[in-house]
């Protein structure tokens, strides 16, 4: 059983989706079995260790480049550290975010959800192309 099909069945078992929705999702999977492989260069699916952010841009005619490599282990450790932030600090952070026009409720973010997010980062590739800049975010 592949990973995506298992996720759908897990959501069905947890009551997050109905049986009809699960059926539709599985049918969609069967129609398009490997959408992630399309478009981007197929990277080896071994043990991915780093999150890479590569930005190539032109500022005032000068080329600029940002190349950041962050160990995924560091993200996991950061999530554990963030889980220790006291609730009163989260309330203040929520207020500041809301004032800045970003209405995100940080108290609703659970450490398990963040860890699951980091775990699935290796499946993610973001590519943004514009005339002035190219941004790539991927794991290696």
């Amino acid at each position: 059983m592949n990973e995506q099909r298992k996720d759908i069945l897990d959501m069905l078992a947890a009551g997050k989706i109905t049986a009809e929705e699960a059926e539709q999702l599985i049918a969609a999977l069967e129609r398009d079995p490997a959408p992630a492989a399309a478009g981007l260069d197929a990277r080896p699916k071994g043990k991915l260790k780093y999150l890479r952010v590569v930005v190539d841009a032109t500022d005032n005619g000068e080329p600029s480049r940002v190349n950041v490599r962050v160990p995924l282990q560091l993200l996991r450790a950061g999530v554990r550290l963030a889980a220790l932030v006291p609730p009163q600090a989260l309330v203040k952070a929520n207020a500041s975010l809301s004032d800045s026009g970003v209405p995100i409720d940080l108290t609703q973010l659970k450490p398990e959800q963040l860890e699951a997010l980091v775990e699935h980062l290796d499946d993610m590739t973001v590519e943004v192309d514009s005339p002035d800049a190219t941004v790539r975010v991927f794991c290696e």
């Binding site: 260790k49 780093y50 500022d59 000068e62 080329p63 600029s64 480049r65 940002v66 190349n67 950041v68 490599r69 962050v70 160990p71 282990q73 560091l74 996991r76 450790a77 950061g78 554990r80 550290l81 889980a83 220790l84």
Partner: peptide, 24 residues
């Protein structure tokens, strides 16, 4: 103890990090 442990995890996960910025 949890906080110090989490801080230590962050420090020990640092190897491999690289920040490379070029402009002109």
């Amino acid at each position: 103890v949890r906080a110090l442990g989490a801080g230590w995890r962050v420090i020990s996960a640092l190897p491999g990090a690289r920040f490379d910025i070029e402009q002109g």
